[in-house]
Design a protein around this nucleic acid. Structure first.
Lengths: 248, 248
DNA sequence: TACACATTGTGTAATATGTACACGAACCTT
DNA sequence: AAGGTTCGTGTACATATTACACAATGTGTA
């Protein structure tokens, strides 16, 4: 493995969302630093997955690299949600301690580019164990201790997600290739914090010709088995309309 | 005036849109460099309004500063549309010449944060004359010579604008405080490259309770005078709904 | 083997929104 | 007074939104 030179004042942070068919979760990294002499814990909190960019890679590649390292997956849905350059971004005392400790090209002034990542939980759950990374319910983030301005970045990402989900079919990135309509409905409810009428929701989905029923049904469930559906990006691209819709 | 230290590898570029009641325009800076000896023109093209950020300012401030210098206006609508860090962003031979010439902290590797700015033409037209800055119709940008990757950035901004205009009432930033419904319609048509039926457009506006008729009418026009309207952000904030609307 | 349990899948009526389409009214100019 | 120009308006039809309840299908278990 080649060792890359990092760009000290530019970094990328990824807010990785996942859906477990019940609620929305976010992938966070545990950060812990102990005093070398007495073993006392100096820092214990959580951070987003992020790192400085390398001299020889662009922003998107840096984000992909970080996600690959974390989840083992390529081809994850990734989209910028903003760039952040406030002067006090990394100025908390404990953050300075941290940077002195890892001593890897820290600059006072860091601009970070935030990436929103959506991943299909069913494809990664295995590979997280061996790292200090795990899923946390989005609803619990408010109570958590987080490093730097990462709590702020998280909420920025969440807002961006909620905005985009209303306008683009990106929610499907959070589901497996096959899903039931109830799963889709629960996902939208989790994303937007609302609830929908089942019949009306399905009527709406019926208009989305890119959500296509399969011949497969659920198996081994203790109730009437649900039909599986598929999201077709091709059909979506071919049939999308654009409306002005910011009314009222 | 204090001289600030710049951050050599981070810059901000502003894509400034304006509307002249006929078409959409963009503010571009003429860039010209002549050979010192023979006066031959080495470079002649256009750039977006942009510059490196200073050590002691954040990204939004840098963008505001640049716009203030260009237009004399504060409080311009400003929103990020993306961060760009491709390795070849500034690598064209003429761009290297340019950077050697101005010799101000050029780094091979520059990340630029793109800002979309919307301005009310009626408030600035005067102050542009004394600088090498002017309005160009958006439709003509495709044929223009532009520096760096600024043509690409321009189209990124235009796409972001077209996306946002459908979902948020930001078009009003391009109009004066008082406007007629025909002006509003022409603006949307210019923004989206479509045309609307007059009666249906007005029916739609009638549902937007935040577009409020005034008692004033147009004066001195050689036809039936139009009523003026006003955009109220307060009413908008209080009455907005959020729908899922990416259907078909 | 039949009953309980859990979740799926479906229809209708009332209201609201979207779309296609044409002409008289108000003001200025000559 | 007549001509030019843009403003402002209504109706009929199709589509979309909302509110609301119950039978069908599979598993588990008594």
């Amino acid at each position: 493995m080649i060792s890359h030179k990092i760009v000290p004042n530019i970094s990328v942070d990824c807010v990785v969302f996942g859906f477990d068919f019940e609620k929305l979760n976010v992938l966070l990294v545990e950060r812990e630093l102990k005093d070398e002499k007495n073993g006392k814990i100096l820092i214990s909190d959580h951070t987003l997955a992020g790192y400085h960019i390398f001299e020889d890679e662009d922003l998107d590649s840096a984000a992909s690299r970080i996600l690959k390292g974390l989840t083992g997956l390529d081809n994850i849905f990734l989209e910028q949600f903003g760039a952040y350059g406030q002067l006090d971004r990394v100025s908390a005392p404990k953050d300075k301690v941290w940077f002195e400790h890892i001593n890897k090209g820290f600059a006072d002034r860091v601009v970070t580019v935030g990436y929103l990542a959506l991943i299909d939980n069913t494809k990664v759950t295995l590979r997280l164990k061996d790292r200090n990374v795990s899923w946390f319910p989005v609803a619990r983030v408010s109570e958590m201790e987080m490093a730097f301005d990462h709590k702020f970045l998280f909420y920025e990402a969440l807002q961006a997600l909620q905005r985009k989900v209303k306008v683009e079919p990106i929610a499907f990135e959070l589901l497996p290739d096959y899903f039931t309509l109830s799963q889709l409905q629960k996902l939208y409810e989790a994303l937007l914090g609302t609830s929908f009428d089942k019949r009306n929701f399905r009527k709406k989905v019926a208009q989305m010709h890119y959500v296509i029923p399969l011949k497969k049904k659920q198996q081994g469930v203790a109730h009437k088995p649900a039909q599986y559906y598929l999201f077709s990006r091709e059909v979506y691209e071919k049939t999308r309309k654009g409306r002005i819709s910011f009314i009222i």
